[in-house]
Design a protein around this nucleic acid. Structure first.
Length: 774
RNA sequence: GCCCCGGUAGCUCAGUGGAUAGAGCAGCGGCCUUCUAAGCCGUUGGUCGGAGGUUCGAGUCCUCUCCGGGGCGCCA
């Protein structure tokens, strides 16, 4: 935040130098400052001259000289010097610190999650609606300490994305499909325990199964499905409660079975077949991958057609996911008619994109055992988003289109601005086609791509005539009634929505109005999985597009360590280690004297913080002994203690020196009134406080939530250092005292902010642990 | 066979292409009659697994390689 203040100023200086002709006008990298590694290098360092020297054709030090000359006049900067090969090191003026501090104080008492004006929220260049799915385990057991990592990571990721300015939807997918074998086994286990019938061979054991059985009261003799639904409902209840205790809440608990019940799954399979991306050919393709995912070969295996089955059953329906980059084709419907898990996934992802408040982007958080899912999920999204293929027809279209003269075009925002679009418009009009500019209709053009009638006809849509004209609208989301009505009203035409992949249509248009070749012919390997170059291009475009719409975040394994040894994931009594057990154990050991509620709070704080300490895509050892230790080594307490210390100081200030600290407004005003050179520790603390929005932005950018635990520790360190050196409450020096109180409030604001994002509490006080008796 | 992750101080790990690679713990030595010592300060400790390459500059990017951890091969 303080950096963006300076960065703005730096950019201004750069522009001024260019305008004054002191620097050649060229494409320089942005001039930005960074935190120097060594404190004696100043408050901030600007490495700009190093990178820009070559572009400007000057040596770095000479360029740095130019900068220094201007920077000396900047009121935010106290001193400047050139160091090393061409670094410009800055020391900030009291004014700069003051401005920064006041900006932070304005956020005191606010929530970084809910208050958009909070200083810790970076400015978001492109706010998106993001659906984040996480945890999503089968409802046949409690949330384990393994999935605990996904729960902690997913929930913190959501917080970070939200603070970064996005609209986040937290979602849990319930794998409650009635034809799931695992769930059937679970139901049978519960029934056996309840009725004393024979226990299934692959049954589920453990106290929690018994607990579920105890709660079920069967009337009459219900079937297995009934048992399954009862059992999973109860298990889900437990999961939900445990997750809540762990500080994890969802906006939507989405049931897989509802997709089957409503027929959506079957409808999606039909749609995929109509598109030509799924079929019933008795073959399966798989990709032979070499290093770096290069496709070395496509293996086509014939699938046996069993004569005996032929009578009553239908052929297997295959999703040709190899066309979309997955390493093998996937079964959507088995020949006995059962729908596969992936078939449900197709409908589920389709649903996520087609809700009233649909998502721009999906993030799915999965565990290490789901690593192989990335390719198939991407294929699933690509398949549903892509246009109807029917390869031979598509080829046809591109050849014949130019002669039909039956096009209606609408503005195609994806084609970009300027010449290219105007060129298309001109050539369309030359040939007597109508070009409709959506901007004139004031419609959200992001929803609408374009309308080539003949192409649309091939997409199985039915024409409607009005004044001899039909408007075919190719949309990414053809179920958006609101948008369709809007277009209908604005254009005065009948509107037919068509689902179509924008890139495929864009290519078709290009081919019609340019003399470009029809693309590279199929390579020998590609000929084994694609019918035509057009199909290849459409599939690859769809797969690439899917990659930008679905981000799969895989978190790596956690190893729990006890006494320096890996601890088993089961407890001694054979029960699964649940996240609730972990919370209770840590709480009980770390605070044996506290009441239960307090122990749960402590257990949750420690567990969450520990899970989040390492990058999610890295295996890490969860040190159970350290987690349960109530000492200086435990980083959670180190951070929380900093907050408790601040609270203590502020309490004391109110009690003992009320004149210094009548209310927070006075602290604010008192600070603005005075300017003095800050103590080195004060500067370090304030700089650290001001780094919060930068950290949030970086964490949101690549999902690296662990940055914030590091930040929290550094911030706490800065505060502890300040606290030990700088006396806050001092009635003999009221002005300094007030400034330091303000600094405390600022530090508290940042600490509360980062802890809120991590889902860890900020305690008002922490009593010293009793000294171990000798 | 392929994919993902890791290899940095004795241990656990930080380290957006930039200056002399940093913390914590462990070791050693200091600091409580002043806001909570769950704290602070000083100090010891390094061929960043190895080899090439990219460039003004590489722990960071690319290629190859060695050693660990995990995963995948119509089960969801």
């Amino acid at each position: 935040m303080i950096r963006s203040l300076i960065n703005r100023s730096l950019q201004g200086h750069l522009q001024a130098l260019i305008q004054a002709g002191q620097l050649p006008d060229a494409a320089y990298p942005p001039m930005q400052c960074e935190a120097p590694k060594q404190p004696d290098h100043g408050d901030l360092a600007v490495p700009f001259a190093l990178g820009a020297a070559r572009i400007a054709g000057m040596n770095p030090r000479a360029l740095a000289e130019l900068l220094v000359e201007r920077l000396r006049q900047d009121p935010l900067i106290a001193s400047v010097e050139i160091a090393g090969p061409g670094f410009v090191n800055l020391r900030l003026s009291p004014t700069a610190y003051q401005q920064a501090l006041n900006a932070v104080l304005n956020s005191a008492g606010q929530s970084v999650l809910r208050d958009a004006g909070h200083f810790g929220r970076p400015s978001c260049e492109k706010p998106e609606r993001i659906n984040v799915e996480f945890v999503s385990v089968n409802p046949n057991g409690p949330i384990t300490i393994g999935s605990g990592r996904g729960a902690a990571y997913g929930s913190a990721l959501c917080n970070v994305l939200q603070a970064a300015g996005h609209t986040v939807h937290r979602e849990y997918y319930i794998n409650d499909g009635v034809n799931s074998e695992q769930m059937r086994q679970f139901a049978l286990s519960v029934r056996a325990l309840k009725l004393g019938t024979e226990f299934p061979e692959k049954g589920y054991k453990g106290d929690y199964v018994q607990a579920v059985a105890d709660q079920i009261e069967p009337q009459g003799d219900p079937d297995v499905i009934w048992w399954q639904q009862e059992a999973q409902a109860l298990m889900l209840q437990r999961q939900r409660r445990d997750l809540e205790t762990f500080g994890v809440a969802f906006d939507t608990w989405f049931s897989e079975q509802t997709l089957h019940d409503s027929g959506r799954v079957q409808a999606c399979i039909d749609e995929l077949e109509a598109k030509g991306i799924a079929d019933r050919q008795p073959v399966r393709r798989s990709l032979k991958l070499g290093k770096k995912g290069v496709i070395e070969d496509v293996i086509v295996e014939d699938q046996p057609v069993d004569e005996d089955d032929a009578a009553g059953s239908e052929p297997t329906v295959w999703l040709r996911s190899t066309k979309l980059g997955d390493d093998k084709d996937r079964v959507l419907r088995r020949k006995d008619g059962r729908l596969t898990y992936i078939a449900g996934d197709v409908a589920y992802h389709d649903d996520k994109f087609n809700r009233p408040a649909n998502a721009d982007r999906l993030i799915t958080v999965l565990g290490p055992d789901h690593h192989g899912f990335i390719g198939r999920l991407n294929a699933v999204v690509a398949a549903m988003q892509m246009s109807f293929l029917q390869q031979d027809q598509l080829e046809d279209t591109t050849k014949d289109q130019a002669q039909t003269g039956e096009f209606v075009f609408m503005n195609l925002p994806d084609l970009g601005s300027g010449g290219e679009l105007e060129g298309l418009e001109a050539s369309a009009q030359e040939q007597g086609h109508l070009f409709v500019d959506l901007d004139r209709f004031l419609i959200d053009t992001g929803l609408v791509k374009l309308v080539p009638e003949r192409l649309a006809k091939l997409h199985n849509a039915i024409p409607v005539k009005k004044d001899g004209m039909t408007l075919w609208v190719a949309m990414e989301n053809p179920k958006n009634r609101e948008a369709i009505d809007q277009i209908q009203q604005a254009s005065g035409c009948d509107v037919r929505p068509v689902i179509a992949h924008p890139t495929a249509i864009e290519n078709a248009i290009r081919k019609t109005y340019t003399t470009d070749s029809e693309g590279e012919p199929l390579s020998e390997i590609d000929a084994k999985r694609y019918v035509s170059p057009a199909e290849r291009d459409a599939c690859q475009a769809a797969a690439k597009d899917a990659e930008s719409k679905l981000l799969v975040q895989i978190y790596q394994l956690v190893r729990f360590m006890k006494d320096g040894q890996p601890a088993p994931m089961r407890k001694r009594d054979g029960n699964i280690y649940a996240i609730s057990d972990l919370i209770e154990e840590i709480g009980a050991q770390a605070a044996p004297q506290a009441d239960r509620e307090e122990q749960v709070r402590i257990g949750r704080d420690v567990a969450r913080f520990f899970y989040l300490m390492r990058h999610h895509d890295t295996t890490f050892d969860f040190d159970l002994d350290l987690a349960a230790r109530q000492s200086d080594e435990n980083p959670v307490f180190y951070v929380q203690y900093a907050h408790a210390r601040i609270e203590q100081v502020l309490r004391r200030a109110r009690e003992e020196a009320g004149s210094l600290y009548p209310d927070s407004n006075a602290v604010n005003g008192g600070l603005a009134a005075t300017a003095r050179d800050l103590h080195e520790r004060e500067k370090q603390l304030l700089l650290q406080v001001c780094a919060l929005p930068d950290e949030v932005a970086l964490a949101a950018e690549d999902g690296a939530v662990n940055r914030l635990t590091n930040y929290a520790m550094e911030l706490a360190r800065a505060y502890h250092g300040f606290y030990d050196t700088c006396r806050v409450i001092d009635t003999d020096a009221p002005e300094v005292s007030q400034q330091r109180l303000a600094l405390c409030v600022a530090a508290r604001t940042a600490l509360q902010g980062v802890l809120e994002l991590l889902g860890v509490s900020a305690p008002l006080r922490m009593d010293r642990p009793a000294a171990p008796s000798e």
